[in-house]
Design a protein around this nucleic acid. Structure first.
Lengths: 105, 105
DNA sequence: TTTACATATCGAAATATTACCATATTTATA
DNA sequence: TATAAATATGGTAATATTTCGATATGTAAA
């Protein structure tokens, strides 16, 4: 079908998997990594470091914005993107909260 | 196209995004969460907690196995799945390593 | 207000993903 | 070996994703 079932899962699971899905793409993950190193980068600078067409990058930025992993701010002729700390913290908390790691066998 | 470009991205980015993509699905994320709480669970028990057909769950388990987030061990008539700590640590390290968080503006 | 530049959106093609049912395979036990 | 139970695989339909080129939109400066 191609459609992901969300019924029957908790809000938290659905929300977090949506964010992780956004991170689960080389281009989008590289954008995130780039913004970690170069906070508040112009859209054009992001496009430059990716091996993709401008329109493709734009869509990836939209997707990251949709899940609130990044936010854009207009400044002159450009849009400067930066991470949305809150959402990144949410990811970090989720990954860290799962501490009941089973013993290796 | 539907095809994700991997050429032009580092191995680490491609590897990590592959893992995160696997996590980016409610069913698969719930499986991971379930295995955190109930380490080493029989496949049947996992199927029980998901609102999906057995064959669908089986495919999700395969995907998680493919990216080495889980591993299965035959025991009698069942297969017991557990987390692959190494891979989970890799995810944790990745998320935590990105510490150069930009200031909120 | 035109021009130039930066970014977003549209439209379309190729491929990927998710889901299900039906069936196959595997493994242990009778 | 036959049976039953557990899990995996094949086939297929519906939908989603990724990508690109072309074009639209927005924004600042001339």
């Amino acid at each position: 079908m191609g459609i992901t079932k969300t019924f029957g899962f908790s809000f938290k699971i659905n929300e977090m998997s949506d964010i992780l899905k956004a991170l689960g793409n080389p281009a989008r993950l590289k954008i995130i990594q780039f913004l970690m190193d170069s906070p508040s980068s112009a859209c054009g600078d992001i496009i430059e470091v990716l091996p993709l067409a401008q329109s493709t990058v734009s869509k990836h930025l939209s997707e990251l914005k949709r899940v609130k992993l990044i936010k854009g701010k207009n400044k002159g002729n450009n849009i400067y993107y930066s991470l949305n700390i809150k959402t990144w913290e949410k990811v970090k908390d989720f990954v860290l909260s799962e501490i009941n790691l089973p013993k290796e066998d």
